[in-house]
């Protein structure tokens, strides 16, 4: 039996829109095990971003139980949530979200700063990660001096900084052309082969196919998709 990383039970998320209550997530149940590579596939407006926010501890559900790494998220303080985001989750965003004034190296160091890692260790770890994603010669470049694919690699390196339990990618190829998108997906596959657990959110079924398990989200409900092995 593999280790369970996260478990969601009957997760409901509702927003108050004026007088009306809009239910975005209608009772989601999901279990993710260590080493999995899951795609959450759904069209826009299906609630997949809300789901990702809840998985990423950026938002808390209206009702239901969300357990990440053995901890119930719904009764944690803002500070504890920040800790979890820092240590347990590695975010990869569609638009990379690198700080433009910092070098690639400094961008990767950011989560390490918030984890209070000493400067020398921080630098070493950031260098390691950039070498790992193949940017050893771009460490001191600013994001604007890098191509989209390279920027996303920096973002992936940053996501890996604190050895997170879970890599959470939101449309990681959305801002890339097909070729670089494929390269980035290849990197994700490699990371998964190394044992990283990955949840990827996308609306593109071709991209979703790179994952080993696909779940579909439609109108706030989760449907277990066909398990396709692309390898």
């Amino acid at each position: 039996m593999r280790k369970e990383i996260l478990s969601m039970q009957n997760i409901v998320k509702a927003y108050q829109m004026g007088d009306e209550e809009q239910i975005v997530l209608k009772g989601i149940n999901l279990k993710v095990y260590e080493g999995e590579f899951i795609s959450v596939l759904g069209p826009s407006g299906s609630g997949k971003s809300t789901l990702m926010n809840i998985i990423g501890c950026l938002d808390i559900p209206t009702s239901g139980t969300y357990i990440l790494g053995g901890r119930n998220i719904s009764n944690l303080t803002e500070k504890q949530l920040a800790r979890i985001r820092n240590k347990e989750i590695g975010f990869v965003f569609q638009s990379f979200q690198l700080l433009p004034r910092l070098t690639a190296l400094e961008n990767v160091e950011l989560p390490l700063i918030y984890a209070r890692v000493s400067p020398s260790k921080r630098r070493k770890r950031a260098e390691e990660l950039l070498i790992k994603v193949g940017l050893e010669d771009k460490m001191y470049h600013k994001p604007t001096q890098l191509s989209g694919g390279q920027q996303q690699r920096v973002a992936i390196a940053r996501a890996l900084a604190n050895h997170p339990t879970l890599l959470l990618a939101d449309e990681p190829t959305g801002a890339l052309d097909q070729k670089t998108g494929k390269q980035v997906m290849k990197l994700f596959e490699e990371l998964n082969n190394e044992g990283h657990t990955i949840i990827m959110i996308t609306h593109d079924s071709n991209i979703a196919k790179h994952a080993r398990r696909i779940v579909k989200i439609l109108d706030g409900n989760l449907v277990e998709g066909v398990v396709e092995n692309v390898y």
Partner: peptide, 16 residues
């Protein structure tokens, strides 16, 4: 705003 959001997502506590 975006930078603050990102920093928070990366684990910055409100105090930081």
């Amino acid at each position: 705003t975006t930078e603050i959001g990102l920093r928070k997502a990366l684990g910055a506590e409100p105090v930081s």
